[in-house]
Amino acid sequence: MKRSTNILMLVMVVVLMAFPLWRIQKPAPGPDGKEAEIFRGSDDQAKDLIGTIAPGYKPWFKPIMEPPSDEVGSLLFALQAALGAGFIGYYLGSAVTRSKMRREQEKQC
């Protein structure tokens, strides 16, 4: 596949993410005057939905360890992404070099 196709696909991913950030408006504050939230996690929304469907439900188990703040939480998420991206980068880097060296060797023969 051509390089331009790859770049086009990456651009599409960025557009798919940027479009909602640009277009979606923050909902008006609710009747209780509380500021409406936007771009919350869908997992949290599902939790709220459980609360409306089964108001009597009480979670019967608590997380053993919770990140003490959002900052620490984002640190751990960033760590998770960095570990993965680092490994993929290492693998692709060595694969690119390997194929380059192989091509040069073939040229010399």
Binding site: I24, I38, F39, F77, Q80, F87
Partner: peptide, 15 residues
């Protein structure tokens, strides 16, 4: 690891 760490905004106004 990478993809499941990336919370992306969506057209529904949630992530």
């Amino acid at each position: 690891f990478v993809l499941s760490a990336l919370k992306m905004p969506s057209v529904t106004g949630s992530c």
